[in-house]
């Protein structure tokens, strides 16, 4: 009798174990401790956001990844962060001038790449958001982006069995609140670090530049690096780079925020890494090609009268110089980042 009980128990356990092994995780999407270790690339400064009060763990990162790609964050469950921020475009929106949000509404600004965010001191084209953790409240609650309230997102998450499990796994208890939601998203976006381009390999003497690329770097250092400072290719300042205001959008940039005269029509200097694939360019996506951007900088006659003094110093670039700058910009593409499996959406490929 006793034997029978033990025997039945044994069978049951074996079945349970078998069942479990059928849902093996695809190793491509598995996140390990090593995957979430923060590595500061050689030559990079100290980051502004350090994860100090948001300890990086595989389970929180996985939760952040699921949230980033989940339409549940929008009111009618049609838009996720990943809708606008596409992995193949360094998390910019490829070939979209202005962002497209919920109910097919069109935003007023171009979707920026999400990369090296922890070195920024402020986010958005005008720097209005000063915390990586608090940034997602903007898209979630914007009536033309996701049009949802933070409160309601929390309610939806609490009612969702899978999220209850994931939050529990990540935080060791069942509490679901905005702090945890936002911190999980910050782990996912904060680890989007790009530092393995040809330029980086050249700088660390692991690759070589062609003559054109070398000349391009030289030109870039004299004409562009005053704002696009290496190695992040931004000095985090706000400038007017000579583009005239689109009178239909009337975007005053930083000025709208600070109402300080000198800030009007200035925008945060974007880091140029992966710029080859983050087209179109500028806060309103007005330039389709890198060639158009370089032509703009060279064409001083057509610069806005509020252009920064460094812009006027660039001067006319010869056809040769333009080509060299372009070939240098192309060395900033980081394939390892663009194909980093940690940032892929597990739901897309299963």
């Amino acid at each position: 009798m006793k034997n029978k009980v033990i025997y039945t128990l044994f069978i049951l356990i074996a079945i349970a174990a078998l069942c479990n092994s059928f849902v093996i995780e695809n190793p491509y999407f598995k996140i390990t401790k090593k995957d979430v270790k923060l590595k500061i690339p050689k030559g990079f400064p100290k980051p502004n956001y350090t994860f100090k009060k948001n300890k990086l763990t595989p389970d929180v990162f996985v939760l952040g990844r699921k949230l980033f790609y989940d339409n549940l964050l929008s009111k009618d469950n049609t838009v996720s962060c990943g809708t606008c921020h596409q992995r193949i475009a360094a998390f910019a929106h490829i070939d979209h001038k202005l962002s497209h949000g919920i109910y097919a509404k069109i935003g007023t600004r171009n979707v920026p790449a999400l990369q090296n965010l922890i070195w920024k001191d402020a986010y958005m084209w005008d720097g209005g958001v000063t915390s990586l953790e608090l940034q997602p409240i903007n898209p979630i609650t914007s009536p033309i982006e996701m049009d949802e309230s933070l409160e309601n997102v929390i309610l939806k998450l609490r009612a969702n069995k899978e999220y209850v499990k994931l939050f529990n796994k990540a935080y060791k208890d069942t509490l679901i609140n905005s702090e945890r939601l936002l911190k999980a998203l910050a782990q996912f976006t904060g680890l989007m670090i790009t530092a393995n381009s040809k330029y980086d390999k050249y700088m660390h003497k692991k690759d070589t530049f062609s003559i054109a690329e070398k000349n391009g770097l030289q030109l870039f250092r004299t004409k562009c690096a005053g704002c696009h400072k290496e190695p992040l290719f931004t000095d985090n300042s706000y400038r007017n780079n000579g583009i005239k205001m689109d009178t239909s959008l009337k975007d005053f940039g930083r000025g709208r925020l600070t109402e300080i005269e000198k800030d009007y029509r200035t925008f945060k200097v974007p880091g140029l890494r992966n710029v080859e694939i983050t087209y179109p360019y500028m806060h309103d996506g007005r330039f389709k090609k890198l060639k158009d951007v370089i032509d703009h900088y060279s064409n001083s006659a057509n610069h806005d009268d509020r252009a920064d003094t460094l812009i006027n110093k660039i001067g006319v670039l010869s056809a040769q110089q333009k080509k060299e700058i372009l070939s240098f910009l192309l060395t900033l593409t980081d394939k390892e980042f663009l194909y980093d499996r940690r940032f892929a959406d597990p739901a897309m490929l299963q």
């Binding site: 009060k53 948001n54 958005m124 209005g128 958001v129 915390s131 990586l132 953790e133 608090l134 409240i137 903007n138 609650t141 914007s142 933070l150 409160e151 929390i154 609140n177 905005s178 702090e179 936002l182 911190k183 910050a186 925020l257």
Partner: peptide
């Protein structure tokens, strides 16, 4: 950054754009 309790942004006492 993200906080809970009185300073939880769900209390609608928070400006997202600035």
């Amino acid at each position: 950054g993200a906080q809970s309790g009185a300073l939880d942004p769900v209390n609608a006492m928070f400006w997202a754009w600035n």
